[in-house]
Design a protein around this nucleic acid. Structure first.
Lengths: 340, 340
DNA sequence: CTAAAAATCGAAAACGTTTTCGATAATTTT
DNA sequence: AAAATTATCGAAAACGTTTTCGATTTTTAG
């Protein structure tokens, strides 16, 4: 079974391919009668335009590309969900690629997407990306590009992100308002800007409320993909400081959950003896006992906004209008649960 | 900045487009000297073949399509991870679509993928899909199709799935071997075959070990996307049967975790007083306290195998060889943790 | 040195669509 | 009835690649 082409329709109706094409596109120089006949036959034969031919001719693919560090992650799969739904609304399809947190893959995937002729690209950068030539290439090719979540200030394009520093500040301030004074922080790796900003927000909240910042209360947790790191850091924290510490703000929910497991095991009461505040509002935060307070990143909104901006730029480009880049900060929200 | 074409290369070297193309494709009727010159210039100019033109000419897209009910789900995002990695190995890209568990979307998305000229399609069917004309269309178009996880016996194509009945049988048998006698079952909706099979496995395990099947111990949980259903069913179970019940086998981990939350709250000891066994081996199962025993579905293996079969069929089709459909059962594994 | 064989190249068609522009036919105006 | 206008159509080029096949040149064989 071969797909139906304009040629088939034209031949059956005894008209030219040109007229058939124009009839379907509702050109004014085709009679109503012919238009009707063409449309009816096209419907009957289930005609769909060949995407390669259209792409070749019009230089547009109706596809956008997305590159994320990893798929298997509540935040990213949620963002992707929003992206796909926005794309679908506009009859667009989405090619997704995983950089696996490596620069080489990310670079290669940008090339692949460009060569596929995608009409726009969304990227959340890998932690290891320090060089931006691959992104400059996208810009040089005049393909709309929007960075989200993991962005870089060095690239001249639209960006959608949250204010990590402010969000962390609010979370820690909440703990302080609840009477906590010795607040530890489990911070993340030094690379991604996010964890630095969250740390800075933590520090600023302490200072603004007259609580001295104590570096001995900050623990570096390198391995974010596992909750054992949170577990062992919690143990270390108790060993180091004993009864003194009354709260922990963690750079993500995984670490907090590791800590909760440790405290549950040792019979250390949450939140009475120690309170916890996570970050990301992972699905799991609502499921663990006690449930975990966390900062909601509004992943759906990030995905939706980034995609909307991308399509604005795509439409500008098609109309030949100049493109103005935007930087949008998505609001975060404190979700308060039993852990504090 | 315009992409480089064969024409550009040909002109700069004073040769024909034909020769340039053949040089890059290593045809035997091009001299080594010309080949070298073409290849060097192509490298220098960063030439990449236009995907539309290649697609139009060769009738292949180097893209496969994937339709899943939802992206935001540990199982599906893991399968997708495997699919994307297998595709990448073969220089293929993946277009993903979400049916959102509706037949209409699934049907529409199949059409969109076909019209995009994808070289193959992987689908995990929506719960609501009862009609398979859209899949028959794929087969009629001679596009390789592989169903995974949520499959249908009525479609003549390759399939990759687990043996739900056997897996449930093994899980319940494990509980019995551990001395449990009154084993309840939280079952899922009636629609997807999976939950029926898991129920049947549960029932058969009881019967094979001389434990009478008691329908009063089976609870229907409709809402799988939330753990409140597991919570309330656990409460109901205790209200109905009190001390009598000593284990629960749940159709998924979400329900088990809801139940754990209830038992933790009421001080009902797990596994002493009641044991639990989940299904899917969700990431969360290892994180909750007590950690949850579960059936691992081997999502990575499902994705990998399905994709491998798809590419085999794609390659057969290209060579004009006949395609033989396969049905592969992926092994599941009991992951024993603290809940039993 | 000629004939046959081999090596090297390029013209042209094809994939299916879109769009420009010129041609013809039908209609209206003078 | 002739001229001008309008309505309707189709030929052809273009998008960039691949592949067939014929043409030319070079090499080898006789």
């Amino acid at each position: 079974m071969k797909p139906v082409t304009l040629k088939d329709i034209a031949r059956q109706l005894g008209i030219s391919i040109t007229t058939a094409s124009k009839a379907l596109k509702n050109y004014p120089d085709v009679s109503e009668k012919t238009k009707r006949k063409v449309r009816e036959l096209a419907e009957e034969l289930n005609y769909v335009p060949n995407a390669f031919a259209v792409g070749l001719r019009k230089q547009e693919s109706k596809i956008i590309g997305v590159i994320i560090p990893t798929m298997v992650h509540y935040f990213f799969s949620t963002v992707l969900d929003a992206i796909m739904k926005e794309a679908e609304k506009r009859d667009y399809m989405v090619i997704t690629m995983q950089s696996n947190e490596t620069y080489e893959l990310e670079k290669r995937q940008v090339d692949l997407l460009l060569n596929k002729g995608v009409d726009g690209i969304l990227i959340s950068l890998s932690n290891k990306t320090r060089d931006f030539k691959h992104l400059q290439k996208v810009i040089d090719y005049n393909i709309p590009l929007v960075l989200f979540d993991k962005i870089s200030k060095l690239v001249n394009c639209s960006k959608v992100l949250i204010d990590d520093r402010k969000a962390a500040y609010e979370a820690v301030t909440y703990l302080i308002k609840k009477g906590r004074r010795r607040i530890a922080h489990f911070r993340g790796d030094l690379n991604p800007q996010n964890s630095i900003d969250r740390f800075l927000g933590y520090k600023k909240a302490l200072e603004d409320h007259g609580i001295p910042y104590d570096p001995k209360l900050v623990y570096l947790c390198n391995n974010n993909s596992d909750f054992t790191d949170g577990y062992s850091s919690a143990k270390q924290l108790i060993d180091d400081h004993g009864e003194e510490v009354d709260a922990i703000f963690t750079v993500n929910d995984m670490l907090a959950i590791g800590a909760i497991n440790y405290f549950n095991e040792k019979g250390i009461k949450i939140p009475d003896r120690i309170a916890l505040f996570g970050f990301s509002n992972w699905f799991m935060a609502s499921v663990i006992t006690p449930s975990l307070s966390s900062v909601d990143q509004n992943a759906l909104n990030i995905g939706k906004t980034a995609t909307e901006i991308l399509f604005e730029e795509i439409s500008c480009r098609q109309k030949g209008e100049p493109i103005t880049h935007k930087k949008v900060i998505i609001d975060t929200e404190l979700v308060i649960r039993d852990s504090c």
